[in-house]
Write a protein that binds this DNA or RNA. Sequence first.
DNA 1: ATAATTTGCGCAATCGATTGCATAAACTTG
DNA 2: CAAGTTTATGCAATCGATTGCGCAAATTAT
Lengths: 341, 341
Amino acid sequence: MKSKKATIHDIAKKLNITASTVSRALKNDPRISKATKKAVTDKANELDYQPNHIASALRSGKSQLIGVVVPIIDRTFFSAVIRGIEEVAYGLNYRVVVSQSNEIVKHEVSTINALLHARVDGIIASLGKNTRDLEHYQNVIDKGVPLVLFDRTTDDLLTNQVIIDDYLGGYMATEHLIKQGYRKIVHFTTVNAVNIYKKRFSGHRQALSDYGIPFDEDLVSRGDMQLEDGIQGITKILEQGIAFDAIFSSSDYAAAGAMQVLKKKGVRIPEDVGVVGFSNEQFTDLTDPPLTSIKQFPMEMGHVAAQLFFDALEHPNKKPHPKKTVLQPELIVRASSLRND
Amino acid sequence: MKSKKATIHDIAKKLNITASTVSRALKNDPRISKATKKAVTDKANELDYQPNHIASALRSGKSQLIGVVVPIIDRTFFSAVIRGIEEVAYGLNYRVVVSQSNEIVKHEVSTINALLHARVDGIIASLGKNTRDLEHYQNVIDKGVPLVLFDRTTDDLLTNQVIIDDYLGGYMATEHLIKQGYRKIVHFTTVNAVNIYKKRFSGHRQALSDYGIPFDEDLVSRGDMQLEDGIQGITKILEQGIAFDAIFSSSDYAAAGAMQVLKKKGVRIPEDVGVVGFSNEQFTDLTDPPLTSIKQFPMEMGHVAAQLFFDALEHPNKKPHPKKTVLQPELIVRASSLRND
DNA sequence: ATAATTTGCGCAATCGATTGCATAAACTTG
DNA sequence: CAAGTTTATGCAATCGATTGCGCAAATTAT
């Protein structure tokens, strides 16, 4: 009940030695005799001694905390990355503080500042969709706090990054559709120029070009990549009477929205129109038909991000050469794009 | 670049006063003159002073950290609860440390201990499916650390809880099916006796009873509530030739699995079989047909959990009367259970 | 046996912020 | 004007762990 937590001073008092000796004994300092070490560790166990992280954090200036900032937590992708980070961090006795920016720049800024304020030892983050001004991140770097960006990153900051090869993902998706015999491929992308979507778009165009299919701007639909945007995007294209036989959406959500519309109109998937999404969200197995998508290995991304973070932590001076790790995506073929002809 | 963080001592030195005065001035202590206060706050701004949380944590014994333990982070439900907790916590200048137990008891135990070790000011948790032994949680209570349980809770611990009325949810789901004219309702529940699933089951039976429908144990399928369990569960029932015209699954995932099997067999949903899930996961809009489900208001649950936490924090002695807040679920009707006859 | 090392441990300061107690100065009151 | 109050601030300890420096005792070398 009222058992106050034991400190090194309590141990010291019981053994008639000083706290310094206890501290050294616990840290296995060679200057302390074996006998004393044993006495100390025994007594520590007896008193259920737990070192006070806060005290050592104050002394060492390290909080053993990593701040993680994501746009939104309830996406399979981001929560899996977080899990990946946690796995590495916990093994090294670090805790993870998760914050969401909710895609709102103001939140992102204030959450970054709050984390600095809380003296986290570093920050691992993915940029919000609308983040243009990078001052708050530059501020992190300037303060010498290790920063790792993942997935939604930027090359305008001199810092470590982990990304997947979005260009390749876009290429694979489109190539797959072409090989299945689709030719007039609608592409869903964003209005704002987020890096990852731009790259997927590039990959898409390159695949078209490589297979001798002319690129048609009319087939590009721009929106916010949500379910609703997929619905509206495809509806508009149908209304305009633009002919198409496939959709490559840079988001699974928009793809799902488009499928709903198409099915309602009696368009058969994949017979009449093939559909490929991006991210391999959990629900891609559950749509009808199941949605072909690009898998991104988010757990692994989390592992790498954490490793880059700990590397940076160990070499606080090594700023000149930020590392950029690129992971390979994988095409997961499901029924929505499998035409058997 | 090399700007060391300013401390109250730096401010004090520049103003030729002591750190005590600075500290008091910043905390708006009435004993300090207005002139001094202004000088201090001005200088603090000038030096970009940020109070060191770690130092005050050491002094006050408070870390301004809430540990949150969930079985798994990438479920809409849990991540929304976390967001709800964050919203309240951030407003009160608290940070949230999120940990996943991954439904593994050993992880749950070690993560709880790690959080205590990290001196969090309290813990908000949801029990793992396989958690029987509650010693690690009892330990939290015994140490006087505020503990709030949500959703997957237990009455075997004397602590605050937030739950939704799972009994009512089960009742509403079944009543809805009955009102739509379904009579032979399969129920998916767990093998292990997790509270929430037991209550949904009770509600289900009560609804049957209230509408004069005999309960049939053959219609109950027990599994782990994942997609795969839904597939296997319904497959087995079909193989056994047990007649049924509806499914009430205590999990959206299992419901989705069952729907896949039924559609493959040519069973029409909702004409031949009506389906209702539970949790209102994001994908329930995306299945074909969209899945009727029970919405749980997870953000609100997070809010309440955080409030209970802060209440407990303010009244560390008030142990005798743990509060139990029960939230009302809501039936979200979609096409999977709408029979138009 | 004395000098030179090594071994084992204590002292005291430090990390920043906080706070009970003391004190000097300014002001009020009789 | 002396005594009592109030006002504004300083002093020093505290929270717990860590660490450079120093010093005795034990051990080894000469």
